[in-house]
């Protein structure tokens, strides 16, 4: 799905390459973390996939396209196959949750009927059912990121890129977001998530691509990776494991795209949503609460 062949990216007017001779392959349907300290080239990697940047040397193939040879006018078609989520959510502040998600479909010319069907479906999938009419500032950080994920995924792209989606969130909320991405991954979507949050990575047992100053230093298959510091979250995850084992249908349900399955209590959206509420930064939390009480 995504293939890097000896990719080097040097930004203009810099000497050290942001990515240095990186080769890797991310097959269809995989969930991969890209980790590394700040400035190690994670965002650069994402931008190369989206053709926000062009490689200096090497080749990037995405969904069967050689990005170096992709003409400018075909870039939008490429981006329609890639959903993107960022640390700063990038929601439109004057649009409601529903409108924010619908916007992605509107600009692509979807029919009103399709929007009315797909948007609520997607909001339900990310665990935001019932919040359609809220404005972004009436949501917690975790909820805002869920809106962003819904917007990125509403078009059902085969690839989802998440560049430090949990960078602004507290650990519990982060876990909820990552689990949501995992859930999206289980629908067959290739997910690549850049992060420097090793705690979250440890909790997930997925493939981990580690960058250090632009160099690919390790690429470990699912389960190989561990930082050694197994935290509380890991334990929580294990505690949930039996529950999930009891309900194997839940994850299969997503693959089928059966909307009723989204309500299955596999622990993902409720944990994510409930967990981040008490921990949100004061302002957001208070505003959120205020609206909630005035709503009822």
């Amino acid at each position: 799905m995504i293939l890097f062949e000896n990719v080097t990216k040097t930004y203009p007017r810099t000497t050290r390459p942001a990515l240095d001779d990186v080769s890797l392959e991310i097959p269809r349907g995989e969930f991969a973390f890209v980790v590394g300290t700040s400035g190690s080239g994670k965002s650069t990697m994402m931008q190369l996939v989206m053709k926000e940047q062009d490689v200096t040397r090497g080749r990037v193939l995405v969904a069967g396209r050689d990005l170096d040879r992709l003409p400018e006018r075909k870039v939008p078609a490429l981006r329609r196959e890639i959903g993107c989520v960022f640390q700063d959510f990038r929601l439109l502040p004057n649009k409601t949750v529903f409108q924010n998600v619908a916007y992605a479909l509107q600009v692509l010319g979807s029919s009103r009927a399709r929007i009315r069907q797909t948007v609520p479906e997607t909001l339900e999938l990310v665990g935001l059912a019932g919040m359609e009419k809220r404005l972004p500032h009436q949501l917690s950080g975790g909820e805002q990121q869920r809106v962003a994920i819904a917007r990125a995924f509403v078009n059902r792209p085969p690839i989802l890129l998440a560049d430090e989606p949990t960078g602004n969130l507290d650990p519990d909320t982060s876990l909820g977001i990552v689990q949501l991405l995992d859930r999206i991954n289980r629908t067959g979507t290739t997910v690549v998530m850049a992060t420097h949050d090793t705690v979250t990575v440890d909790a997930m047992r997925k493939r981990v691509i580690r960058l250090d100053r632009g160099v690919l230093v390790s690429d470990m298959e699912a389960g190989d990776y561990t930082t050694g510091s197994i935290p509380r979250i890991r334990l929580e995850e294990e505690a949930e494991a039996p529950r999930r084992a009891d309900e194997p249908e839940a994850s299969d349900g997503y693959d089928d795209g059966d909307p009723t399955a989204y309500d299955e209590p596999d622990g993902l959206p409720p944990i994510g949503r409930d967990a981040d509420e008490p921990r949100s930064r004061g302002g957001i939390f208070r505003r959120h609460k205020a609206v909630q009480t005035s709503d009822r």
Binding site: M50, R73, V75, P76, A77, L78, R79, R80, E81, I82, G83, C84, R90, L92, Y103, A104, V107, L108, G109, R151, A152, N155
Partner: peptide, 17 residues
């Protein structure tokens, strides 16, 4: 720029933007 940035991101055509 926020709106156009999102349009770009989700793959809206140059014409739409």
């Amino acid at each position: 720029r926020r709106e156009t940035g999102i349009m770009r991101l989700v793959g809206a055509s140059n014409f739409t933007i």
